[in-house]
Design a protein around this nucleic acid. Structure first.
Length: 481
DNA sequence: TGAAATGTTGGGGCG
DNA sequence: ACGCCCCAACATTTC
């Protein structure tokens, strides 16, 4: 009988906070070493600090992960600081023989991981990384010209064709513990939960953690996909999956979602177009990661130079009205209040509020992106900037700048009975049915309480945006980096 | 994964 | 019967 390998393996959890279908975990178990699971709250300067809503989510998710690991006879070690230092220090401290992680694709993480890999290998530590987050990694899908795709349709056609049968990693029944556990921070000491004032009451709609993620998937698919193409645009319905924060933290992986959708489509036949519409949402997530990888500065720099001569307005009062849900346009304000209350906003409404900020208010998309980064539980370094650039008109395959949403028409089209508006804007509950999206038409101003008048006239704002776009000086063409 | 302006068509009222 | 106007409905173009 061979003696067991004693030098432990570090299992470094990052945004893969699950035990099912987790390649790094499976590899760690297969290696036969004792396993030390660790999560590092990275405070390095190069890493963008996570927002308040993400901190809320992370605390609950780590709590769930630690509990799930305990069931396997293991633990979760917590450390805080510059991960580029913490990880090698921990490896030395425990005499690690191997380290396993799943790959990330935003620029700071890619750089950090590349350096760590070299450094750890130089110290004799085996380094293994896997893919837990994507159906196709960014470099796996290449266009005819070799670089990254610029057009979603072409990308997704090529990406889908590569997916084929999606396998899964076995879930371990137990983890071998080390002889001694290294010290761990206490989760509560990280103070991830908002304090004084704690405005997270409304976040109780969420169940962070792997069990919550699997339940969310099951709940979504139980309703069947039939009609998804239409119902996903109605924000008053439970027509969307709400998987985004679970996917962001890797509490569930896209391969699991993909498989479940395929299986469900056989059980409960639905129109191909409905299943395809949902899978295409996974496709946009993949496309955004593809973009983030090929455009490391996407979070701050326009992917295409279509707006680089545009003069954005500085307007703190208008920006504040937008963040607080007091623009006077009910569908915009309902969305912004849903975001503040629950850490999430329906996708249709995200497009409307983003268009309003960038075009009606002519405020730089980066300001909106930063607000979403702080307030969304699904804030993601690939999806958030890519989506803002898409709406603004400077992203890949983006809506052209002149495609300006009319918040009243959007409200009437996608929230025809005003149910969504009334849920999130209580001042408007007393209005007669047809006026939910046009409270300024109410004869009796008392019906809409202290709800504000529109802060801009949409017709004038639209003309202003088009004029600003037409007036911009075109910068010289920029070469693709 | 728009909206608004502009153009075209055709039915019906009317002198 | 005919031409004319009005205008809704739809299509196309423009932003």
């Amino acid at each position: 009988m061979t003696s067991p390998i004693q030098a432990p393996a570090i299992l470094w959890f990052r945004r893969d906070l699950r035990l099912c279908d987790n390649p790094a975990l499976t590899q760690a178990v297969m290696g036969g070493r004792p396993v030390i699971p660790v999560f590092v709250l990275d405070t390095a300067d190069a890493v963008r600090p996570i927002g308040a809503a993400s901190r809320w989510w992370l605390e609950k998710s780590l709590h769930a992960l630690a509990r799930d690991l305990a069931r396997l006879g293991s633990r979760l070690i917590l450390r805080r600081g510059d991960a580029a230092r913490i990880i090698p220090d921990l490896a030395a401290e425990v005499g690690a023989g191997a380290i396993h992680w799943n790959r990330l694709y935003d620029a700071p993480a890619v750089d950090r991981d590349a350096q760590l890999k070299t450094r750890l290998r130089a110290c004799g530590v085996e380094v293994d990384s896997g893919n837990a987050a994507l159906l196709n990694e960014p470099w796996a899908v290449t266009s005819g010209s070799g670089g990254g795709y610029q057009v979603f349709g072409a990308y997704w056609r090529a990406a889908r064709a590569r997916i084929g049968d999606v396998g899964s990693c076995p879930t371990p029944r137990g983890l071998r513990a080390p002889d001694a556990w290294p010290a761990s921070d206490r989760l509560a000491d990280w103070r991830l939960h908002p304090r004084a004032p704690d405005s997270s009451e409304g976040f109780s709609v969420w169940s962070p953690g792997e069990a919550g993620a699997l339940a969310a998937l099951e709940r979504f698919l139980a309703g069947g996909l039939d009609g998804y193409g239409r119902t996903r645009d109605i924000p008053s319905l439970e027509g969307v999956s709400r998987l985004s924060p679970h996917l962001h933290w890797g509490e569930i992986g896209p391969r699991q979602v993909w498989r479940a959708v395929q299986a469900r489509a056989h059980l409960q036949p639905c129109r191909d177009s409905d299943a395809d519409a949902f899978l295409a949402e996974l496709g946009w997530r993949e496309f955004n990661h593809h973009l983030a990888y090929h455009r490391p500065e996407m979070a701050t720099r326009d992917v295409r130079p279509t707006l680089e001569g545009l003069v954005w307005r500085r307007d703190p009062a208008a920006f504040s009205a937008w963040t607080r849900g007091r623009t006077g346009y009910p569908i915009v304000d309902a969305g912004m209040r849903q975001l503040w209350a629950t850490g999430w906003m329906h996708n249709r409404v995200r497009m409307i509020v983003a268009s309003f900020l960038v075009k009606d208010l002519l405020i730089d998309w980066r300001e909106g992106e930063a607000w979403f980064w702080d307030t969304l539980v699904d804030a993601d370094p690939a999806n958030n900037p890519a989506s803002w650039q898409w709406v603004a008109g400077c992203g890949a395959d983006a809506a052209p700048f002149f495609r300006i949403f009319n918040p009243t028409l959007q409200g009437e089209r996608f929230d025809p009975d005003g149910a969504y508006v009334r849920k999130w804007v209580p001042e408007l509950r007393g209005l007669p049915g047809g006026l939910a999206h046009t409270p300024w038409r109410a004869k009796d101003p008392r019906l809409s309480g202290d709800y504000p008048d529109p802060i801009v006239d949409h017709g004038q704002a639209r003309a202003r945006a088009l004029a600003a776009h037409a007036a911009q000086k075109r910068p010289p063409p920029r070469l693709h980096p």
